[in-house]
Computed example of a mutant assay.
Amino acid sequence: MSYRLGELFCGPGGIAWGAVNADIGDPKFRIVHQWANDYDASTCATYRRNICPDSPQTVYHEDIRKFDMNKLNDIDALAFGFPCNDYSVVGEQKGMDGVYGPLYSYGVKALRKFKPQWFLAENVGGLRNANEGKAFTKILAELRESGYRITPNLYKFEEYGIPQARHRIIIVGIRNDIDVVFRVPSTDPYRNADNTCRTAIEVPPIPENAANNEATKQSKIVVERLKYIKPGQNAFTADIPKELQLNIKGAKISQIYKRLDPNKPSYTVTGSGGGGTHIYHWDEPRALTNRERARLQTFPDTYKFEGSKEGVRKQIGMAVPCKGARIIFEAILKSFAGVEYPSVEANINE
């Protein structure tokens, strides 16, 4: 069974890569790209280049609020990583009251229009707390009312062998009239995985001709400051001379000038980059290149991102880790194929 996948808010293709590369050893069960949509032109160009180079017309660069879904072909599955700006712990957590909060409703609209057999929806862990938890409750209720049995779970991707501490709520839904039960894949098979950021970035070495690998020009003061910051420390926990310290009043975000600990997974890769929020190398006094960041998100080195250096950084930071997505899609395929796999109870009570 080939499942034709439609994707809203598709980003650069982390979810899509996981979907089309999902392999359960039975060629009858696979996922194929059908169409995708995103509001950012460079992001769409990245997706076309890497996911569907032979059918670029199936990626629609349009604002979802003005997007005519009637022109889309039928699908068997839907994925939507709806924008998380208003649910993020880093932001102000406006939730439903923000610009991005209500955008999940277009995923609901697509479910009701196309009635796919299953769906995967993704958002940040902070979604549970937005609007005192009311936003999450409302979203789950609307997904259920669309005709789906849902399994929401907070996935900690570093526990699945991904070289990055990245926590995301992923909701898998299966249409009510289909006798298939999805179970959350267990982390046990990945318990001994070498998912340190050093291994991710250095093994194998990044090819010299790899795309998106240009270095960030660091100012002299940043280079000097980083010399005093040890692996795992940030600008506020390190012993830095007074003239190199940051004069910040109020909240002190822990990722400011934070160096990676080479013996652990990376901290969360984000789309931002100003004011010391790049991810910083554990040894060299510099920020990571976009290609190094892409490795932490498990994109293959052959995956070329389109757009400006800053735009590419944002694309990489907004993506779902490719190999993390693949694990979940393979669990979905196994569920439909009737193949047993190690599983655990969902950690979010509906």
Rank of each mutant, 00 (worst) to 15 (best):
A235G: 13
G275H: 00
S266K: 04
I64M: 05
T277Y: 07
Y303R: 05
F329K: 00
I328P: 03
Y341M: 14
N73F: 07
P241T: 13
G274R: 06
L111H: 08
D188Y: 02
F236E: 01
W282V: 06
T277D: 01
R30H: 12
S146E: 12
Y160Q: 02
K258Q: 15
L154R: 08
G147V: 07
T199F: 14
T187D: 13
I279Y: 04
V339D: 07
G101H: 06
K264G: 03
W17M: 08
M318D: 05
W35M: 04
A211V: 00
S266M: 12
K309H: 08
K66P: 01
H61T: 14
K113Q: 15
F305G: 05
A251I: 14
N85C: 10
A346E: 14
W35I: 10
A319P: 02
D40C: 10
K109V: 12
G173M: 07
I256A: 11
I170G: 01
P205N: 10
K217E: 12
A337E: 05
Q245H: 07
K66T: 15
G250A: 08
A41T: 13
G126W: 00
E145K: 14
L333Y: 02
L333D: 01
K217M: 14
N209S: 05
R49A: 09
I150K: 14
Y303N: 03
Q297Y: 07
Y100L: 11
L260R: 11
S55E: 08
W17N: 03
K230I: 12
L333K: 00
Q117F: 09
Q315T: 11
S219D: 07
I24N: 03
P116F: 11
N347V: 00
H61G: 04
E202C: 15
Q255R: 12
E310M: 13
I332T: 04
R175S: 06
V59H: 00
Y190N: 09
E350K: 11
E292F: 03
E330P: 15
N234K: 09
V184P: 02
V181Q: 14
I75F: 06
L296M: 08
E208M: 08
K334Q: 12
G13I: 03
P189Y: 02
E306M: 06
A200G: 00
N85R: 14
V181C: 13
G274Q: 09
N123R: 04
Y104F: 12
A319Y: 01
S2L: 08
R259Q: 06
N85P: 07
I139F: 12
G125C: 11
S272V: 09
K220S: 14
K28R: 05
D86H: 00
Y39F: 13
G25L: 07
Q297G: 03
K115M: 03
D54M: 09
A319E: 01
C322R: 00
P205F: 09
G95P: 00
N209W: 01
P27K: 05
G317W: 03
H33K: 06
G91Y: 02
E158P: 05
P342M: 00
S55I: 14
A165K: 03
V90I: 15
D97A: 15
P163A: 14
N192K: 11
S219Y: 05
E202Q: 12
I75D: 03
Q117E: 09
A77V: 02
G101A: 10
T151V: 05
L78P: 10
I150R: 15
A215P: 10
T277W: 07
N131W: 01
G276V: 02
N153E: 08
P262K: 10
T302K: 15
N195H: 11
